[in-house]
Simulated scan of single mutants.
Amino acid sequence: MSLKDRLLEDMKAAMKDKDLIRKNTVQMARAAILQVEKDNKVTLDDEGVIEVISKEVKKRKDVLPEYEKSGRQDLIDNLNKEIEVLMGYLPEQLSEEQLDEIVKITIQEVGASSMKDMGKVMAAIMPKTKGRADGKTINALVKKYLA
């Protein structure tokens, strides 16, 4: 079963279970996927769907600090539930140790020695970690080793 089919089935199940947050989250993810397909006139495979879902997770994680500043616990809880639902569709996330190892190996492969090589290192790492790690975390690790 493709990821798009799984999203559809999960949305139907959430509707039957009257799980409003899950239904709305899956519906928003499906809408984002459809938008990308229409804009680019393509049909996304599972890898493309994972990319769209990763962006949706990133959007939610980016607004979380703003919600925390506002002190609206209900919104924070909803956002965390949405992130949790979306993470269920992504491949297993890399651990800190695994990421650390990938960063070290990639820096050696690229031959990076200073912060000037940051772009080369990031360009080499991102395809290896696509959908399995947060870009900010990777960026921080690369800076740690190149600084």
Rank of each mutant, 00 (worst) to 15 (best):
K16Q: 12
N40A: 15
V26I: 12
V42T: 15
D45H: 08
E51H: 01
E47D: 12
A32M: 09
V36H: 10
N24H: 06
A32Y: 04
G48A: 07
Q27T: 01
V52I: 09
K55V: 13
R60N: 15
D17F: 03
K16M: 09
R22P: 04
V42E: 14
D39I: 03
D17Y: 06
L34M: 12
D19C: 00
S54H: 11
D17A: 11
V57M: 08
R22V: 03
K58Q: 05
L44Q: 15
S54T: 12
R60T: 07
Q27F: 02
K18D: 10
E51Y: 00
N24K: 10
K18E: 11
E51C: 00
M15P: 03
V52Y: 05
D46S: 07
I33C: 08
D19G: 01
I33W: 09
K41S: 09
R60Q: 15
M28A: 08
A31L: 05
L44E: 14
R22N: 07
K59A: 06
R60S: 12
K16W: 02
Q27P: 00
D17M: 08
I21M: 06
R22K: 11
V52W: 03
I33Q: 10
K18V: 07
K58G: 07
T25Y: 00
E47W: 09
V36E: 11
D39P: 04
D17I: 00
K23N: 12
M28I: 02
V52A: 09
K58E: 04
M28R: 06
Q27W: 01
S54L: 08
I53V: 07
T43R: 15
V36T: 12
Q35D: 14
Q27H: 04
V57C: 09
N40Y: 13
K55H: 15
V57P: 03
V26G: 02
V57F: 08
G48E: 05
M28S: 06
E37T: 09
D46Y: 03
V42Q: 14
S54N: 14
V36W: 05
S54C: 10
L44M: 14
A32E: 07
D39W: 03
K41A: 10
M15R: 12
A31R: 04
E51L: 01
K41L: 04
M28H: 02
V26H: 01
K23I: 09
N24R: 10
K16I: 06
V49H: 02
A31N: 08
M28W: 01
R30I: 01
D17L: 07
D46W: 03
K41E: 09
K59Q: 11
V49M: 04
M15Q: 13
Q35S: 15
E56Q: 03
V36Y: 06
Q35K: 15
A31W: 00
D46E: 10
Q35F: 11
A29I: 00
K41I: 04
D39E: 14
I21Y: 03
K18N: 12
V36K: 14
V49K: 00
I50Y: 07
D45I: 02
K18A: 13
V26M: 05
R22A: 06
L20D: 13
I50S: 05
E56A: 00
A32V: 05
L20H: 12
D39M: 10
T25R: 02
V42W: 12
D39K: 08
K58H: 08
E51M: 04
E37N: 14
L20T: 13
N40W: 11
T25S: 02
V57K: 07
K38M: 10
S54M: 09
M15H: 13
T25C: 01
K59E: 06
R30F: 01
L20M: 14
E37C: 11
